[in-house]
Amino acid sequence: MSVLIAIPARYASTRYPGKPLVALRDPDGTEKTLIRRSWEAAMAVRGIDRVVVATDDDRIRTAAEAFGAEVVMTSPDCRNGTERCAEVAAALPGFEIVVNLQGDAPLTPAWFIEDLVAGLREDPSAEVATPVLRCDGRALNGFLTDRRAGRVGGTTAVFGATRHALYFSKEVIPYTGRAYGDAEETPVFHHVGVYAYRPAALAAYPSWPIGPLEELEGLEQLRFLENGRSVLCVEVEARGRQFWELNNPEDVARIETMLAEMQRG
């Protein structure tokens, strides 16, 4: 199966305007923008046929082309990354799987995407697949700390016996009712903001209205669930790596710390 990775990136983020061009610093002082680090993460994935940055902003296009990325310009009317990926898929037809690696996830390990594509190939009943990562106590406590401070630290997922999603939320679900040590395994799964779509489901997505759950949570993947489409949750292994998305300005220091840990490891 031929696979395309599209990296949606918009300048006018509600929570963090201009974040694709935010510089993240390595321990040696080297700075690279968020969009460059996300593109480098995509380029490290095995078995991918093409990688493009999808944006509606000339500043992002200029920055991306400067470091060698292929850019597809999309409409400013796209309401989320999935709609942007649908435009890319329409402009570049012929791929059997389209992967959405969001431009705020530079810590995404290559094997997350490799496992995601494999999971979608193996489950013909699934129209979309997305990775989930079991939280250890450190990650869960970070989520809870953010929520107590009024910030969204990440999204959690719950799924059934067949691993098909039941719900995604910016709240921490399921409720656990107890504290966990940093290295302790928890029953909470962090939803990793990456998607693999079959083209037919992706093409249909923009035609569906935004439903009440997507409106309330601000989570694009809920539109698939609200329209009866099957979303496979593929559990991935951290292999000692910490994972975090850049959602808020406060996340810059956290991600820089994780980048330093990666380099030391």
Rank of each mutant, 00 (worst) to 15 (best):
L140R: 07
W208S: 03
Q102A: 13
P76Q: 10
G142S: 10
A69D: 07
D57S: 15
V88K: 00
L107F: 09
W208R: 05
R264P: 02
G68L: 13
A105K: 03
L4P: 08
L21Y: 10
P76K: 11
A86F: 10
D49A: 14
R163M: 06
A118E: 15
P131M: 12
V45K: 12
G94D: 12
R264G: 09
R229H: 12
A183K: 05
R163W: 05
G29H: 04
R178V: 05
A200M: 11
P212E: 14
A41I: 02
R46F: 09
R147E: 14
I48V: 15
V98N: 02
G265T: 11
L259F: 15
R178E: 07
G160E: 06
G228Q: 05
V234K: 05
V53D: 07
H164I: 01
R10A: 14
C135I: 11
T55G: 10
T257S: 13
R59I: 04
T30V: 03
L144A: 12
I7Q: 06
R84Y: 00
G211P: 05
P17S: 08
L225W: 10
G81E: 07
A200N: 04
T186N: 04
I113E: 08
R46W: 02
V194S: 03
E261I: 07
R148I: 05
V132T: 11
Y205I: 04
R254Y: 09
G81H: 05
A54T: 11
L101W: 01
D146F: 03
L202D: 05
N248D: 15
E214Q: 14
P106D: 07
R25Q: 13
S38K: 00
D182H: 09
L4N: 09
A204P: 00
Y167G: 02
A204V: 05
W111E: 14
I35L: 14
S38F: 02
D104S: 10
V117H: 08
Q263R: 15
P106S: 10
E220K: 01
C233G: 02
Y180D: 05
I60A: 11
W39D: 13
A204E: 15
E40R: 13
T130S: 15
D136N: 15
R46A: 15
D115H: 09
G68T: 06
T55Q: 08
R121H: 11
A253Y: 01
S169Q: 02
G47F: 12
P209D: 04
T62S: 14
F189Q: 00
M43P: 00
D182C: 01
N100R: 01
F168R: 01
L24V: 03
T62H: 12
E261S: 12
V72A: 04
V88M: 13
E250M: 08
R148H: 06
C78S: 14
E31W: 01
C85I: 14
F243V: 03
N247M: 13
R36E: 15
P174I: 01
R84D: 00
G240Q: 08
L140F: 12
M258Q: 09
V53Y: 10
V22N: 03
G154V: 04
R147F: 06
V234C: 03
A23C: 04
D115R: 14
S13I: 12
E256N: 07
P17E: 06
T176W: 01
N247W: 03
P109T: 09
F67A: 11
S75Y: 01
G119D: 08
K170R: 14
I97L: 08
E40Q: 15
R25Y: 00
